[in-house]
Amino acid sequence: MARFLLLLLLVSIAVFMLLELIPGDPVDALVPEGATPEMREQVRELYGLNDPLLQRYASWLGGVLQGDFGRSFQTRLPVAEAIAERAPVSLELAVLAMVVALAISVPVGVWSAYRPGGWVDRVATLVTSATLATPSFVLGILLVYVFGVQLKVLPILGWVPFSQDPVQHFSHLVLPVLTLAAGECVLFTRLLRGDMLATLQQDHVLSARARGLPTWRILARHALRQSSFSLVTVSGVVIGRLIGGTVIVESIFSLPGMGSLVVNAIISRDFIVVQSVVLLTALIYLLMNTLVDLTYPLLDPRVRKATS
C-alpha cells in the first residue's frame, strides 16, 4: 500500500512536469496571436503561471483531487466534463474486448493443452503466431477491408449510442472489439496453454484421471482452476494494453472515446487534456494492478492461508 501511494505521488509529479517540459510558453496557447505583452502578463497572472513550481503543483493536485482537472485550452470547457462524456465509450470497448478474449481463449487454450498436437492446437498455434505478428492497427484495417469494404456486412465507422438503437450500437462495436480482443486472446491462449500443459502432467491431475472422473470435470475443476491464477496475474498487464489499445481502435473506427480525445488534443496542442488523460489512465492502471495483487490471495486457498 505504501508502495502504491509512493508510485501515485511519482506519477502525479511526472504528469505535472509533462506540461512544464513542453517547449514553448504555455501562454502562447492561451492568448490570441499578436497579443500585447500586457495581455500575456494578465493571462499569466490569471492562470497562476508566475507562482513557484511547488505551489502550482500543490494547487493543481488539490484541484485534481476534487475532480477539477482544469479547463481545455481549446474549448474552454472543464476537462473533467469531456472525459466523463468519453470515458464510457472506452470502458465499454475494453470490457467487451476482455470478455470476448476470455470467451475465445479459455476453451481454445484448455483444449490445445488437453490435446497437444491435435487439430485445435495446430490451428490455434498458427492463428496465434499470425495474430501476434499483426499489430492492432494493421488488423483493424484488415477487418474493415474484409467485412466493411468487400463483404459489406458490418458498419465500419462511427458510434451509435445504446439508447438510440441497441442493435446498431453493437453491430458498430463488433469490429473494434474484435480488433482489440485479438491481441489479448493470443496472450491468454498462449499463457493458458502453457500453464495447463504443465498442470495436466501434475500428479493431482493424473490422480483425478486415475479415479475415472469425467474429462470436462478434470479440466475445469482440477486443472483450469489452478491455471487461471496466472490469467489473473497478467490481467493487470492486459488492462494496461487495453487502455493503450483503445487509442488505436478509436482512431481507426472513429469512436468518441478517451483515445481519440487524447490524440486530437495532442494534434491541437491542447496539453491540459493530454495531461489529464495520462494521469487518469495511469491511475486506473495502477489501481487495477494493485487490485489484482489484492484479489490473488482470495482465489488461491494456499496463499489465503499464508497471508492470513
Binding site: V205, L206, S207, R211, G212, L213, R221, R225, Q226, R302
Partner: peptide
C-alpha cells in the same frame, strides 16, 4: 475407461504433496 478407473483399478501416487488438487477441498475430491 472411466468406469475402469476407480472401480477396478486405483492408484496411490508417490508424493501426497502433489497428488491432491490444491484448490479443491478434500471432501469435494
Amino acid at each position: 475407461n472411466k468406469h475402469l478407473w476407480g472401480v477396478d483399478l486405483a492408484m496411490v501416487f508417490q508424493d501426497p504433496m502433489t497428488s491432491l488438487t490444491p484448490v479443491v477441498t478434500i471432501g469435494k475430491q
